[in-house]
Design a protein around this nucleic acid. Structure first.
Lengths: 302, 302
DNA sequence: TGGCGTGATATCTCTAAACGTATGACGCGA
DNA sequence: TCGCGTCATACGTTTAGAGATATCACGCCA
């Protein structure tokens, strides 16, 4: 790439003159007087080294050299105008690409309204969605393969900022044949002797610990009979009678046969859905997504 | 087309910096000090309205907006560099398109070496060749659908300039059975009583008149028994015994069976092949073609 | 032949910005 | 904690060129 020999202003004048083929009218369209236009064209011709127009009295026409330069000039001007507009759109956050990771269970609850609201406001932003559990999300945020993550419980990493999207109560997941399934609400302590089906702790340590804490507060340590990586599987195992479980309220949307979801007491035990992003990420799309979260928060936390 | 908001110099700096991702090295490549580069980039960012680079100590990187602008800037710079080079080539006459008309009979004689020499010297010039008789050539030169014409006898038009490419003697075209075919040279006067086969006068009035004049100088007016639009046909008709003809020496190349070409006396009667072009045509390709004609002229006029 | 239209020229002003030197801020690694 | 690398800032100089007005040159047509 070599140093540019021309400037855009004279090239614009050139293009306009090539369209008008009349110095007076072209100057008017450019909003300048006629002499400066003559000068600009002359300077341009000096730089090119050859005349670009033939000026016969009463008729201005392009020379072959001018005809050769015209399409290039036009393309360059259009490219730059388009590129500038695109850069502004991206810079202003009204266009671009935002990479969002989310925990699988959120696809049933907060994710759809969030995406719909965001898309309504920024239709020119392309969303790359990645379903990931907590640990991979943190890693992805770390090496910048993802701009924003939606996960259960704040990850507590120094270089990540978070905001709460939503807090949920826990529900007890019971086989429908379970004696407690006849009650509307289940005190946690009554589950002390049941075997538990839980997610592996590594998938989301903080969330897992929250469950253990809740049980501890109720006076027992859950006996884990089985682990499964997805809520779908956890609930299916519960339905098969392998045990009970504690799950965020949103899991109710799964509606599996043979599985009952019951509110638990005390209802002080809650779990958070949070958004996380790289601290000081200058990407305006991230800020916009956060704004959408802030706007929607009241709508699902009554 | 709207007024350009950017200039090329800063865009060039932007592209170089985007390649180097290092202000010091980019400045060195641009041949300037580092502070001016910082300023140019800052001004550019001000115009765009958003940062184009993230400057974290030890690392300079493109922002999404910068990534968006980069290809447009690169394309614009390349387009203009290419366009400028092309315009210069065309303006300097080393490239472009030259439209040449020629009389059909010249395709056998002067045209091939002329085109070969021209093409050797200006390989990037595209030649549009049109076979036309004299009158259409003059018309085409007039409305600029042709840049240069090659024809027999100067057209004598006020707005056309001409140069002689070549002068030729006339040869008698005889059936090989004709009594005069036994001679090496044929005095024109001996053809006084033969019927003539000639081109239509309208195809090239001056050339036609030249033949009539030659006969008049020999003391007779040719009796035209037949007209034909092409030399090929004229000679075929002569071979068929419909008469004799007078033709420029170059027609010998036709070499038809049953037709003899014989030199004529007096040899003062000659015909000119001329090139014609619009007076004051600024097209350098025309000038170059004329130069090639001038260079080649000695080679075929001994 | 004298206006009219068109473009070129002359001259002046003014500003943006290109560039340099000197220096400051800041994180990072020894 | 002290350099070092890296980029930003401050400030001054210089220049290209964009713009204006006034005027000239020239062909054309009434």
């Amino acid at each position: 790439m070599t140093r540019p020999e021309l400037s855009l202003a004279p090239l614009h004048a050139f293009v306009v003159l090539a369209e008008e083929l009349h110095f007076g009218r072209a100057a008017a369209r450019l909003g300048i007087a006629q002499p400066p236009l003559s000068q600009q064209i002359r300077r341009l011709e000096d730089k090119v080294g050859h005349p670009l127009f033939t000026r016969t009295p009463g008729h201005t026409a392009l020379t072959p050299a001018g005809r050769e330069l015209l399409p290039a000039a036009r393309r360059a001007l259009e490219d730059l105008a388009d590129g500038l507009a695109a850069a502004r759109a991206v810079g202003g956050g009204s266009a671009g690409r935002l990479r969002v990771a989310f925990a699988a269970s959120l696809a049933l609850t907060v994710l759809p309204p969030l995406l719909r609201a965001y898309r309504d406001r920024f239709p020119d932003v392309h969303l790359d969605l990645h379903e990931l559990t907590t640990a991979p999300q943190v890693a992805a945020l770390h090496d910048r393969t993802v701009d924003l993550g939606l996960l259960r419980e704040p990850p507590g990493e120094a270089d990540l900022d978070t905001t709460t999207v939503h807090t949920e109560r826990f529900v007890a997941v019971l086989p429908s044949t379970h004696p407690l399934a006849t009650r509307r609400t289940v005190p946690l302590a009554l589950l002390a002797d049941d075997p538990f089906v839980l997610l592996p702790r590594a998938a989301g340590p903080r969330f897992h610990d929250r469950i253990i804490e809740a049980c501890a507060a109720a006076g027992f340590t859950p006996r884990v009979a089985q682990r499964a990586v997805e809520w779908q599987t956890v609930c299916a195992l519960v339905g098969a009678g392998l045990g009970v479980s504690l799950a965020p309220e949103g899991i109710r949307h799964l509606r599996l046969r043979g599985v009952a979801f019951r509110a638990t007491t005390p209802d002080t035990v809650r779990t958070e859905v949070v958004a996380a992003w790289h601290k000081d990420d200058p990407n305006p799309l991230v800020a916009h997504f956060r704004a959408v979260i802030d706007d929607l928060r009241p709508s699902w936390t009554p």
